[in-house]
Computed example of a mutant assay.
Amino acid sequence: MTERLLSIVTPVYGPSARFLPEAYKSLLDQDLPDGWTWEWLVQEDGDDVGAANHLPTDDPRIRISKSRRGGPQVARTVAFGRSRGSLIKVVDADDLLPAGTLHRDITVLTEHSEVGWTTSRVLDLLEDGSTRGFDMDPPEGVLTSGSVLDHWKQHRRAQVHPATLCARRELVALLGGWLALPASGDTGLLLGLDALSNGWFIPEVGMMYRLHEHQITRHPHHSTGEEWEARMNVMRERAEALHAWIQRN
């Protein structure tokens, strides 16, 4: 592990590779606290992705690798296995980071030792270029351990967006990375982090979440049916088991 290094984890498959130049530009626009730098773990999910065709070859911070097709959750976890940073940041290939995002994440986690992870406000980026907000943002500050699970059990939706997560490395390692599910593995990670530690909500926009036709969230099984029920059950049961284990020990 390297202190003062932020590892950015990005899964990419064929249709999303074309968005990589915009994601890279948004990384170049970031400023970091003194002494900090970032590395970008771009993980190709399967064959014929061609991420290198969309990114410069002369930036040593970009580290591209390929793994067999397993979906974005598996690709994120493999990328985590290649990372070296003390903090782990989620950025999908089709999303954008507004200026200041990484600085805010690092500042919270270095100034608040009781906090293990951060999330931020999100704006959906629609295909026509317009944006819309996320409607459940909590107040700025500490998200007490267990509060995300309580909200999720009531609404089947977290009050914060898992695509904006930045977390301490040891917590991601304790959870084994992302849940290996067809979808919702990032929500599973969020619920696991919520069991292990307090979080922190940053009210400034920390993600432009691009909506497009190739997203897995557009699959008909994403929000209904037997697969959806199974995904919800896995996330709930693991989160509840983690909370119970911590309380007993």
Rank of each mutant, 00 (worst) to 15 (best):
P98I: 04
A99V: 09
A99W: 06
A99S: 14
G100V: 12
G100H: 12
T101D: 09
T101M: 05
L102R: 01
L102T: 05
H103K: 12
H103A: 12
R104W: 10
R104M: 08
D105W: 02
I106E: 01
T107Q: 13
T107F: 07
T107M: 08
T107L: 07
L109V: 07
L109D: 06
L109R: 02
T110Q: 13
T110W: 04
T110A: 11
E111D: 15
E111V: 08
H112L: 12
E114R: 04
E114N: 13
E114S: 14
V115K: 04
V115W: 06
V115A: 09
V115M: 09
G116W: 11
G116I: 11
T118G: 02
T119E: 03
T119C: 10
S120K: 02
S120Q: 09
V122E: 01
V122I: 12
V122L: 00
V122P: 02
L123I: 08
D124A: 13
L125R: 14
L125V: 07
E127Q: 14
E127V: 13
D128W: 06
D128C: 01
G129W: 10
G129D: 10
S130V: 08
S130M: 08
S130F: 01
T131A: 00
T131W: 06
R132M: 15
F134W: 10
F134V: 05
D135W: 08
D135N: 11
D135S: 13
M136D: 14
P139D: 06
G141K: 12
L143Y: 03
L143M: 02
T144E: 15
T144M: 09
G146N: 01
G146H: 00
S147E: 15
S147V: 13
V148P: 13
L149G: 02
D150P: 04
D150W: 11
H151W: 14
K153F: 03
Q154G: 00
H155L: 11
R157N: 11
R157C: 11
R157H: 13
R157P: 03
A158L: 04
A158Q: 08
A158I: 00
V160I: 14
H161G: 00
H161A: 10
P162G: 11
T164W: 06
T164A: 03
C166K: 02
C166H: 01
A167V: 05
R168M: 07
E170Y: 03
L171P: 01
V172C: 14
A173H: 11
L174H: 13
G176L: 12
G176R: 11
G177M: 01
W178I: 05
A180R: 14
P182I: 10
P182D: 05
P182Q: 06
P182E: 01
A183M: 08
A183L: 06
A183T: 04
S184A: 10
T187G: 11
L191N: 03
L191K: 03
L193E: 06
